[in-house]
Amino acid sequence: MTQEQSVNLLRAPAEVKYAEELDYLESIDTGAKPFTWRLSPRMVRMFVLGSERADGIDREIPQKWFGDRSFVERAIVTLASDRGLLLIGDPGTGKSWLAELLSAAICRNSTLVVQGTAGTTEDHIKYSWNVAMVIARGQSRDSLIPSPIMAAMEQGVVGRFEELTRSTSDVQDALISILSEKYVSIPELDDDNIVFAKPGFSIIATANSRDRGVNDLSSALKRRFNFVRIPVVTNKKSEAEIVRFRTVELLKRHQIELDVPPTLLDILLQSFADLRTAAASATSDDEKLESALSTAEQIGVLEDAILHSQFFGDAQLKAHTLAGSLVGSLARRSPEDLAILNKYWHGVVEPRSKADGGEWPEFLAGGREAIATLS
């Protein structure tokens, strides 16, 4: 798929979206490449974290994932050792985005994905059958439908498993043999009944730390993975960079010309920081917002406010609209979440609007109005 064709996609995968960058990195890459990797580990890291002046390359490679360098390096080393990689953390910490970027850089294919749910079966990670072909010609390799994981094994590339802990123990057990033996047996066939993994095959799985207790991983499966824990971003500077990066992408995708005033971005970041502090000091779940208050949710609030301003406002992002989007996005339980937000608006936003002025008074009014509407 060309970048011109990707314009017609709602969301292009990373290997399509950044094809030009990946082509460039391949052209200058002189490092050793494990297995069938398209880029060396150093170039994979550069693609994910961006280039630095010391790299001495002819063009700038922008940073795409914002987090500690050691997390990315450990993830790359794990995949170079052909062990499974498990990215674990709270919702919205960028686990899936990091998995996609790593897959795109390593094998130029991030779309071999299994989504873990309560309805995921062994067929989703092994194979199924084309019933019409089986009836017409019988069971054969031609009538077999490989799962994304089996396709990754056959091609020697990276397969992805999203939300591993949401799948049942039977599915997790089936994954153990794939990670251990590196092959899948097809007992229905007499000949050509084993699919062996080619060099370069590995699995990147993600798990939500808030799902602990849903379908805990067995000790046997844990031993097949190297764990990389992705923490919630709490550094204001890093969080601001993430939100700006995603906002630029959002505006391009929607073909919107709209400035996000730095003062409003500061208000958004400060509000989430305040609400996280309140959640950390809460003594019960009823005193916490149901939202994880992740960076991804901040981006969602900002996206909602931008689109509302574009379609129903005067194409200018204002504090009143931002406040309404924040309340509307975070008030998921009624009356619990509304009570928490109301307490925050009266106890924190109101004093801050009096002390700091600026955009805070309008933010205060917009939040009060939204809370009153939802109550």
Rank of each mutant, 00 (worst) to 15 (best):
R332Y: 10
A339R: 13
P335F: 05
Q316W: 04
A319W: 05
S334V: 09
R332E: 07
V327T: 04
Y344D: 00
T321L: 05
D337Y: 04
H320K: 13
N342K: 14
V327K: 01
V327W: 01
W345G: 02
A339W: 01
G324Q: 07
H320R: 13
T321E: 08
E336K: 15
A339M: 07
L341F: 02
H320P: 06
L326V: 09
L326N: 04
A319S: 14
W345R: 07
Q316G: 03
A331E: 13
R332A: 12
K343D: 14
D314T: 14
R333N: 15
Y344W: 12
S329Y: 12
D314H: 10
I340L: 05
D337C: 06
L326K: 08
G324F: 05
P335E: 10
D314E: 11
N342M: 10
K343F: 09
E336G: 15
R333Q: 15
G313W: 10
A315R: 14
N342H: 08
L341W: 03
A339Y: 09
A339C: 04
R332M: 12
L322F: 08
D314S: 13
D337I: 06
G324P: 06
R333K: 15
S329N: 12
S334T: 13
G328S: 14
S334D: 11
L322E: 02
D314M: 11
S329P: 02
A319F: 07
L338V: 10
A323I: 10
D314K: 14
A323W: 07
L338E: 08
P335I: 10
H320E: 11
R332K: 15
S334A: 11
A319M: 10
S329D: 07
G328W: 10
A339S: 15
A331F: 14
P335C: 10
L341I: 07
Y344H: 00
R332P: 04
Y344E: 00
L330Q: 01
Y344F: 03
I340Y: 01
A323T: 05
L341S: 01
L341N: 02
K318A: 11
R332S: 15
L338K: 09
T321C: 05
N342I: 01
S334N: 10
P335W: 04
Q316N: 09
A315W: 03
D337Q: 05
L338W: 01
L330C: 02
S325Q: 03
R332W: 11
R333P: 06
H320Q: 12
L338S: 06
R333V: 13
S325T: 03
A315K: 10
G313R: 06
D337A: 07
G313Y: 03
T321D: 09
S334W: 13
N342A: 12
L322K: 08
L317R: 03
N342W: 08
L326A: 06
A315V: 07
Q316D: 11
G328V: 08
W345P: 02
L326I: 12
L317D: 00
S334F: 13
D337H: 09
A319Y: 05
